[in-house]
C-alpha cells in the first residue's frame, strides 16, 4: 500500500493540468486512491464482521451484504465511470445485472432457498 501512495505523490505535479481534460466530476488520481483506501478499510471491516456471527445475531447478514453492495457499486460507479458516463452504458449494464438478480432470485425462491 505504501508504495502506491508514494507513487501518487510523485505525480502531484501532473494533477494541475489534469483538471483540463478531466471532466468526470473532477476525479483525480488522488480521489481514486482515497476511494481504494476506503474500499480496503471496508474489506477489513467485512473480515472482522465475519468473525462475529454470534455477537451480531440478526445484523450479521444485512451488514455483510450492505458492505458488499457498497464496494460493488463504488467500483461500478467510480472506477468504471458509470456515474459520469453516458446513461446508455448504465442501461446496458443494469439491464443485465437486474435481469440476473431477478431471474436467479426467483429460481432460488422456487428451491425454497430463502425459507428458513
Amino acid at each position: 500500500m505504501s508504495t502506491d501512495t508514494a507513487h501518487a505523490t510523485d505525480h502531484d505535479d501532473v494533477h494541475d493540468d489534469e483538471d483540463h481534460w478531466n471532466d468526470e466530476g473532477h476525479w483525480t488520481d488522488l480521489n481514486y486512491i482515497k476511494l481504494a483506501l476506503a474500499l480496503a478499510v471496508i474489506t477489513a471491516i467485512e473480515v472482522a464482521i465475519s468473525y462475529m456471527v454470534d455477537d451480531l445475531g440478526p445484523f450479521f447478514l444485512p451488514l455483510l451484504l450492505g458492505l458488499m453492495l457498497i464496494k460493488f457499486f463504488s467500483v461500478v460507479l467510480f472506477f468504471m465511470h458509470l456515474k459520469f458516463d453516458n446513461r446508455l452504458f448504465s442501461l446496458m449494464f443494469y439491464l443485465g445485472l437486474g435481469l440476473a438478480v431477478a431471474v436467479y432470485t426467483a429460481a432460488l425462491f422456487t428451491f425454497k432457498f430463502f425459507s428458513p
Partner: peptide, 18 residues
C-alpha cells in the same frame, strides 16, 4: 481490489497520453 486502483491509474495516464 488494489489492482482495480492501479488499473484506474493506467486509464487516467492513458487519457493524459502518458
Amino acid at each position: 481490489l488494489m489492482s482495480s486502483l492501479t488499473m484506474v491509474l493506467a486509464v487516467t495516464a492513458a487519457k493524459r497520453k502518458d
